[in-house]
């Protein structure tokens, strides 16, 4: 299958009063059509910033390195995302070919405008259509995501809906423009488990139906295991491990990924002690030298961990890791 989006050497820093903060460091990945990628990491790992870069949506103080390149492959053309400047050009990656679902649906809907009006507005912006047609599509979409009484809900405000319903409406809105790529930033974190299960199911159905690519940002490895085809793990702006979901979850290669999995309380073994990853995530202002994880790593192999950034090492079948444990220069 052909590539949908290619991210190459993405490096992103923020200018702040305290100096330049590196949020994303030399991250590369690509996503195919119809593929679901889980982007996992703790707060401050740069996963949201990476996703926003795909829509060129980061704040004004963001500085992209000259080597950074994001290419979106559409049916009729290729879009160099980071070179887009004018709002009219940016529309294609902001709601056109790429849509985003945010974590907190209450904060993503305008509180004083009805759900329907917001849906119609964006449809009319992105697709050349009449208001009546836009309304028809919106109501159909609301119905499609399992909102009962879609006609009534169309004229309601965000506060009148429950949390799960709001997230469904958010999904309906994001999908009504038929994007090629959907970025879902912690879409189920604010929801109860029972509602989370419903939303995950809904998203899986929609991938099959619309055949789009999804980047699923989450800190919950269980959610990733249930949704993603492949996983990328980030820590302090570095992509430290990536691979097919089964390999990464069953045989995690990076000490951090291993730590994350053993820190997770498991239901099938209640006696297993909870093993936290020692220490705290360093402040982005005090970015560790060498491998960024060495300050918390229990498997430091020597000086190189403190001094050199580990190279990418390919394990079997598209599974790769960046860690000094693995032999140097063995890159396949």
């Amino acid at each position: 299958m052909s590539s949908l989006i290619d991210v190459e050497n993405l490096t992103l820093q923020f200018k702040t009063d305290e100096g330049l903060i590196t949020a994303v460091d030399n991250v590369s990945f690509s996503l195919k059509k119809g593929e679901v990628m889980g982007l996992v990491g703790e707060s401050g790992s740069g996963k949201s910033v990476t996703a926003k870069a795909l829509m060129h949506l980061n704040a004004r103080n963001a500085v992209y390195s000259p080597e950074s390149k994001i290419t979106l492959h559409l049916d009729d053309r290729e879009v160099d995302v980071l070179s887009l400047r004018k709002p009219s050009e940016l529309q294609v990656v902001r709601g056109g070919a790429i849509s985003m679902i945010f974590q907190e649906p209450m904060a993503s809907f305008a509180p004083a405008i009805t759900i329907g009006k917001q849906m119609v507005e964006q449809l009319m912006l992105h697709g050349d259509m009449s208001k009546a047609k836009a309304k028809e599509i919106s109501v159909e979409m609301l119905d499609r995501v399992g909102i009962s009484d879609a006609h009534k809900r169309f004229d309601q405000y965000a506060f009148e809906l429950s949390g799960g319903m709001r997230q469904r409406a958010m999904i309906a809105m994001a999908l009504s423009t038929q994007p090629k790529l959907l970025i879902a930033d912690e879409p189920t974190t604010a929801l109860d488990v029972t509602i989370q299960a419903q939303v995950i199911d809904l998203m899986k159905d929609l991938v099959n139906e619309f055949h789009m690519g999804i980047i699923f940002i989450t800190h919950d490895l269980g959610v990733v295991a249930q949704t993603a085809d492949k996983v990328s793990v980030m820590y302090l702006g570095e992509l430290i491990e990536e691979g097919p979901v089964r390999e990464v979850i069953r045989t995690p290669a990076h000490p951090y990924t291993q730590g994350l999995l053993s820190a997770l309380p498991k239901l099938d073994d209640l006696d297993a002690p909870l093993t936290p990853v020692p220490g705290d995530i360093p402040s982005p202002l005090e970015r560790p030298s060498g491998c960024v994880f060495h300050t918390r790593c229990s498997q430091v192999v020597g000086d190189q961990c403190m001094k050199a950034l580990p190279e990418r090492y390919d394990l079997d079948g598209n599974h790769s890791v960046s860690c000094h444990i693995y032999p140097k220069g063995a890159r396949a």
Binding site: M165, V193, T194, I195, Q196, A197, D201, A225, Q226, R246
Partner: peptide, 19 residues
């Protein structure tokens, strides 16, 4: 409804309808 860590458990959960 708790998402299982096993990727092969997909679709095995018993869904609760409604809210």
């Amino acid at each position: 409804a708790i998402p299982s860590l096993d990727p092969d458990d997909r679709g095995k959960t018993q869904k609760l309808e409604g809210e």
